[in-house]
């Protein structure tokens, strides 16, 4: 930006010639109506002023609307339906107050401001060779003064220190969270866990489930654990679905007789990236994940029949307890939810 101040006079006259040449090539400036007709100019002036005053009026109306309209007032507006009156009044007045300033300024510039196009020259961005050499020389002088290249011991030790010093900033992050350990392989389900309906918490009898039906369920102790831990972590792994089909419709299961009279229990968490799955097509026994459409065949071991999920839905072996309620025979045999590096085969 500072290069053209100190240019020699010859360059200056050459520049002036270049600008003149380009200016001669520019199309002739066509006068606007406002340039030749004072009436039109005055009209444009009034229009601009009207927009600015309109903006001021809208600002006043905004304050009025803010004070006068209760926050929960609704209003029916044709084409928009029933909407929040405060929101629409504030939005429209504030929006117009801002917009009119903009349109006014643009109208002003287009109709009334001097709109002669101007020409400026570009200059090569690269410095001259002398300047470059001078810069290199200056750097070398400073470099020699410091002795950076002549004293390798200092240089190398400095580099070592500089490479190492950010390490504490990384180490400090260690306590962001606990190490994974085995928790991704564990859920609340264990032998004898009672299956209850989510969210009512009512235990389930086999007869509660209609043929072809699907219900969401959880282990009976989940609400308690959730309360105790103060988070949803247990829920994110323990959620299951129960489906009931004719026993002869079951093609295969993940273990022998893991169903109870045609009732099957599967993890509700997709093995792709962990969305809960609940779109069930009872005729085909397919369960579809709404996030990325992984489809699992519940009649055939929960195997993947379509979509990006690579692993079957883990099945929970179930039976009934002496009181006739559904319970888990055992926990899940494989981790539920998305894959992870250490997961391996199971």
């Amino acid at each position: 930006m500072t290069t053209h101040e100190n240019l020699p006079a010859t360059t200056e006259s050459a520049e002036a010639a270049a600008i003149e040449k380009a200016a001669a090539a520019l199309p002739a400036h066509r006068p606007r109506r406002t340039d030749v007709d004072p009436k039109a100019a005055r009209r444009a002036e009034r229009q601009v002023a009207a927009m600015f005053l309109g903006s001021a009026l809208m600002t006043v109306l905004f304050v009025v609307a803010f004070v006068a309209i209760p926050v929960d007032e609704t209003v029916y507006i044709w084409g928009f339906g029933t909407v929040n009156a405060s929101n629409i009044a504030l939005g429209v007045t504030f929006g117009l107050a801002i917009l009119l300033i903009g349109t006014g300024a643009i109208h002003w510039s287009k109709k009334l401001m001097n709109e002669k196009e101007e020409i400026q020259l570009r200059h090569p961005l690269a410095s001259s060779d002398e300047e470059r050499e001078a810069a290199v020389e200056a750097f070398q002088t400073y470099q020699a003064d410091s002795g950076f290249t002549q004293r390798p011991i200092i240089r190398r030790s400095l580099l070592t220190a500089m490479v190492l010093f950010p390490i504490p900033m990384v180490v400090l992050l260690r306590d962001l969270g606990p190490l994974p350990g085995e928790v991704l392989r564990e859920t609340l389900w264990e032998p004898g866990s009672r299956i209850v309906i989510d969210p009512t918490g009512r235990p389930v009898r086999p007869s509660d489930l209609a043929l072809g039906g699907l219900i969401s369920a959880m282990p009976a102790d989940l609400p308690e654990v959730q309360e105790e831990e103060g988070n949803l972590n247990a829920r994110a792994k323990a959620a299951i679905i129960l489906v009931r089909m004719e026993p002869q419709e079951i093609v295969s299961q993940q273990g022998d007789n893991w169903d109870y009279g045609g009732i099957l229990a599967f993890s509700k968490i997709c093995t792709h990236v962990g969305c809960p799955i609940a779109l069930y097509e009872q005729r085909t026994h397919h369960l579809l994940c709404p996030c990325h459409q992984s489809t699992f065949d519940l009649a055939d071991s929960g195997n993947v029949v379509f979509g990006p999920a690579a692993r079957r839905l883990p099945q929970l072996p179930i039976t009934i307890d002496p009181e006739g309620f559904l319970v888990a025979v055992d926990g899940f045999a494989e981790p539920v939810g998305p894959s992870f590096w250490e997961r391996g085969d199971a």
């Binding site: 801002i98 917009l99 903009g102 349109t103 300024a105 643009i106």
Partner: peptide
């Protein structure tokens, strides 16, 4: 002016 137009339209 265009800033105010963009802001106004968004609002």
């Amino acid at each position: 002016g265009f800033f105010f137009v963009v802001f106004g339209v968004i609002t």
